[in-house]
């Protein structure tokens, strides 16, 4: 286990494997984890959900609208 958000990597790091198990709350489809941007991208909903301090914010109203 180890490298989850409570583990060695400390706050702000999230286990990528766990992130990939999340789905878009709007479309329930898969997300792509953008580690550099700290975002979870839903192509289906054209939304990027932010990860702040290691906490994914899975709310459409908090997400960034992707350009078309």
């Amino acid at each position: 286990m180890g490298d989850n958000m409570t583990g060695k990597k400390g706050l702000g790091r999230v286990d990528a494997k766990l992130l990939e198990l999340l789905v878009c709350p709007v479309t329930k489809t898969r997300l792509v984890y953008d580690e550099a941007a700290q975002e979870l991208v839903s192509e289906a909903a054209r939304l990027a959900y932010p990860i702040r301090d290691g906490i994914p914010i899975m709310l459409p109203e908090e997400a960034r609208q992707l350009p078309d």
């Binding site: 958000m5 286990d15 766990l18 906490i55 994914p56 899975m58 709310l59």
Partner: peptide
């Protein structure tokens, strides 16, 4: 506690 997330 594997995940903590903000969700509705």
């Amino acid at each position: 506690i594997e995940e903590v997330a903000e969700m509705d």
